[in-house]
């Protein structure tokens, strides 16, 4: 671990995390440190625990053992994760899990409204976020009638609208064609948010991240890229 870094810019710190799914160990004493401004790629085969790791960071799963420190605070109970969920945006693997509102605008507004932002301001956030992703005029499109690529981009928008400090993306290129993947990499490169991307598309990860880890045997191993 980089010792020159001070505690202040460490955003996520995982210490000796263990997690087993039924009898199968998924995370086996995993430690991980994520700092402000980093763009990290997680590579690993199916079932290696990439999604599990994200779920643990978001507090959707509780580790069997180990310590979580996010934004400088230890996180254990459900209540500790309210702040985490407000400041870390998680883009799910399947956009159909994320987009549940009838229209694009309402889905993007869901997060900001939950944060208590006034309605008038939310409308501005919605159109700015759509603009940023090149989805101008999508406000009143019906979410379940969008194409796969559009769904993916909108689900990224729903999370970006909450203006998170960190973005977690779970297999963002799954099922996308080359053109949409290129569009997504361009969007990610232009963001000034730190992010972690889990994928098994090494080529894509090398394009959009500057640090690559491999999840192997329930632990993270740095990969030279």
């Amino acid at each position: 671990m980089d010792t020159s870094r001070k505690n202040t810019d460490i955003l996520i710190e995982l210490n000796e995390i263990y997690f087993r799914y039924r009898e199968r160990p998924v995370l086996n004493g995993l430690s991980f440190c994520f700092c402000e401004g980093e763009r990290v790629g997680l590579i690993g085969p199916n079932g290696s625990g990439k999604t599990t790791l994200f779920h643990i960071i978001m507090g959707l799963l509780k580790p069997d053992a180990g310590e979580l420190k996010i934004f400088g605070q230890p996180r254990r109970k459900e209540k500790d994760f309210t702040e985490v969920r407000r400041r870390i945006g998680f883009v799910f693997q399947d956009p159909d899990d994320q987009l549940f509102s009838p229209t694009v605008a309402e889905d993007i507004a869901f997060g900001p409204l939950n944060l208590g932002i006034p309605r008038e301001e939310v409308l501005g956030i919605v159109s700015r976020t759509l603009d940023m992703l090149g989805l101008k005029g999508f406000e009143n499109r019906v979410t379940h009638k969008l194409s796969g690529g559009e769904k993916r981009l909108v689900s990224v928008a729903t999370v970006l609208a909450m203006n998170p400090n960190i973005l977690l993306l779970d297999e963002p290129t799954a099922g996308l064609d080359e053109k949409t993947v290129a569009r997504l990499s361009k969007i990610l490169k232009n963001l000034d948010t730190s992010y972690i991307i889990a994928s098994h598309d090494k080529e894509f990860l090398q394009k959009v991240t500057n640090k690559l880890y491999k999840l192997q045997g329930g632990k993270l191993v740095m990969v030279d890229s």
């Binding site: 779920h55 978001m58 959707l60 309210t82 969920r85 407000r86 945006g89 998680f90 799910f92 899990d97 994320q98 549940f100 605008a105 309402e106 507004a109 869901f110 997060g111 409204l113 939950n114 944060l115 309605r119 939310v122 409308l123 729903t158 999370v159 909450m162």
Partner: peptide, 17 residues
């Protein structure tokens, strides 16, 4: 879906736009 809603700050109340 419920998890993804939790991750976006859902606390049991729906707000209309």
């Amino acid at each position: 879906i419920y998890q993804s809603m939790l991750c976006r700050g859902f606390n049991g109340k729906f707000h209309t736009l």
